[in-house]
Nucleic acid binder design. Structure first.
Lengths: 147, 147
DNA sequence: TGAACTGTAATCACGACGATTACAATTTCG
DNA sequence: CGAAATTGTAATCGTCGTGATTACAGTTCA
């Protein structure tokens, strides 16, 4: 089984969808979100950290504290979420450099270029959908991607 | 740093490019390929296994044995290589199921659908290039993906 | 026959990831 | 004010995927 990317994106989508489904003025604690997503509260806070810094969600400490969306669900695209969590990390696995071999140099460059292209295509697909779409179940099980 | 996919694809591209660059009737040993790619000979054989079964390369045991391309470099698309090595493994990381929560169900379905879309888009990008392109350095460092 | 390979299983070490624990800081409420 | 609830964050731990390494049987050529 090939290594897939980590589950932060999945957890983020899950949690954001939950937050999108509650009343506007209600906040939800990390523990509640974590229980629903089947992960650890600390993990939830770590995942939501970057999203808070980007202004997608807000958090409140103290009793009756918790999390809520800072934007409307339709204003949060999955591409944005991906970018915030994955940053510029490569999608392809590039093995170590091999400076001695000329062909190796070329291969490295090709793979790097491909990685950029693939990352763009990946985000482009995710950009087509928002948290609202996930909440409404509006992501078809099968659809033709731009091939 | 997020977990990227494994390096099998990168190794495969590297090795295939090397094989594409030699005379037609010359075979190269796993050790030679491994040294050039900076990996282990056993790893090379494991990576090339699926490609051999798919008819992309052939191997010969015994003295003066080794590997050679079974197809012309322009006939080996990177998309094919990716599919052979990655199979149907998910690109997105899907966290464990959460049957108790209705929203969770929907999120799982959405993520699964997205994973298919993304995998398709990824392969579509790779399909645009062949081993020949890598060998010739014909993969531009920057190009607009279909956004 | 012996050397040079492939094919493959078994084991090992490393590293990423997420769980868990712990604790300081913040906020609400009685 | 003080207790309870909750975030923010560091530190540690266990698990798992990955590739290196070793070992060895089978194959082929000289």
């Amino acid at each position: 089984m090939a290594r897939s990317t980590n589950t932060r994106f999945a957890v983020a989508v899950h949690v954001l969808t939950l937050l999108a489904g509650v009343d506007d003025d209600r906040v939800i604690s990390s523990e509640e979100l974590a229980d629903s997503a089947g992960v650890n509260p600390v993990h939830v806070r770590r995942v939501l950290g970057p999203l808070r810094e980007a202004g997608l969600v807000t958090s409140r400490a103290g009793a009756r504290g918790g999390w809520e969306l800072a934007l409307r669900p339709e204003g949060i695209s999955l591409g944005t979420v991906w970018r915030l969590l994955q940053g510029d990390d490569p999608v392809l696995g590039l093995h170590g450099p091999n400076p001695s071999c000329a062909t190796g140099k070329g291969v490295q460059q090709a793979l790097t270029a491909l990685d950029v292209a693939i990352a763009d295509a990946l985000v482009a697909q995710l950009e087509r959908f928002s948290v609202r779409d996930v909440l409404d179940g509006d992501i078809p099980a099968q659809f033709t991607s731009a091939v």
